[in-house]
Design a protein around this nucleic acid. Structure first.
Lengths: 208, 208
DNA sequence: ATTATATCGATATATAGGTATCGATATTGA
DNA sequence: TCAATATCGATACCTATATATCGATATAAT
């Protein structure tokens, strides 16, 4: 099982969406050429990405859709369910909980933790909210591997350390802060500022 | 004014955050080495990124913080205010509106548009909600350059076309859909699925 | 005054990832 | 049956970006 380069991994969800859309329309075969045109990539790139799944295509036809979907999902680990907790039930946290699309990735958020006493005991989007004091114990008991971090920037580092100590293995970090943790924990950052910086820059360049 | 590579642009907001934190602490000078250690980058990379702003450092001292902040903000275009509208006042849209950090980037959301009649006339996080029918007219009158797109995937393409026709120049797309527009419009995608794919993959690799 | 040191900045090198080329193969249509 | 075609898959190439090396410079310490 050779490792797939990250840029390809990041494109996989795009392929999956298109493939599932084709599938809904009743299509059974898809070529790298077709996918490439729909997504605005070069067909060579797509062909290479698909080859990384280990699947073989068929000249003149392309790839059989169902096995392809399966292969991509397996490459991503999305064929198995991943349990997670969410820490920080603010605006963004609630919005993420309300997004039903996560189920597609196998992501299942089973508990929410927050420091605000007013929220404890309530439910956000159907998921119960627990106090931060119960965090360590909960992770220890359930061996939940992943945490979605949606706390304010100021408390991000502190909370992340708490998560690490409790034994969490992956953190999806939405807080605008760079976390410094041991490399036992995988941290994936979603940085809106970086994204907006790119947009600003491209717009600026465009108008010159 | 030579163009700065996108990977550097994406790192600029991280530098800015650190620099402002130093500034708060009263520090006046910062070296590429220090920034690099705090952010987990190589010092050579940071030095090169900073050089791209056009500023000169001082041996043994590094860079003077205030001019550096200014230079980075100017490179990003964040010293000028960017007006934008937000389309789609759902969970995510409201959460983004509630995030006060955008002001730091010069981003100012002045109006919200939504197709739900129940929301028209109300305010979300203090910003008034207008019906979709008024979208084209509003953009035409105000010449607002940017739109934040937080509608469901199904209506993303349709709405984006409407935005293009109305004359929008940049779209910050949070909908899980690849937009097909003319290249007159700059589209910046925030794809949670791609981000989660990367996290899944790194976690999987890690446990082997 | 002289030496040691931390940093910058320029040049050179390495690597990852994307792109182009081309032969091989299966299917379609004449 | 045979030619035309669309695709795959392997190899080779190219470009962007990150990393390494090294001399230059200003400050601080001796």
């Amino acid at each position: 099982m050779k490792s797939i380069p990250l840029p390809a991994i990041r494109r996989y969800p795009l392929y999956l969406r298109r493939l599932k859309a084709y599938r809904m329309g009743g299509t059974l075969w898809v070529s790298a050429t077709m996918l490439a045109e729909d997504l605005g990539f070069s067909s060579i790139l797509v062909r290479k990405d698909l080859a990384l799944t280990g699947l073989e295509g068929r000249p003149k036809y392309g790839f059989s859709i169902d096995p392809l979907i399966g292969a991509i999902e397996e490459s991503l680990g999305w064929n198995n369910r991943t349990d997670a907790i969410l820490v920080g039930a603010g605006n963004l946290g609630s919005a993420l909980l309300g997004y039903s699309g996560f189920a597609q990735y196998g992501l299942e958020i089973s508990a929410v933790f927050d420091s605000d006493p007013a929220k404890i005991g309530t439910k956000v989007q159907g998921v119960p909210v627990f106090p931060m004091e119960k965090l360590t114990d909960f992770i220890g008991r359930t061996h939940i591997p992943m945490a979605v971090l949606t706390v304010p920037a100021e408390s991000a580092q502190r909370t992340a350390e708490q998560l690490e100590d409790a034994g969490i293995r992956g953190i999806w970090n939405f807080a605008p802060a760079k976390l410094k943790l041991s490399d036992k924990v995988v941290v994936q950052r979603v940085d809106l500022a970086s994204s907006f910086a790119e947009l600003s820059s491209r717009l600026k360049k465009d108008q010159t």
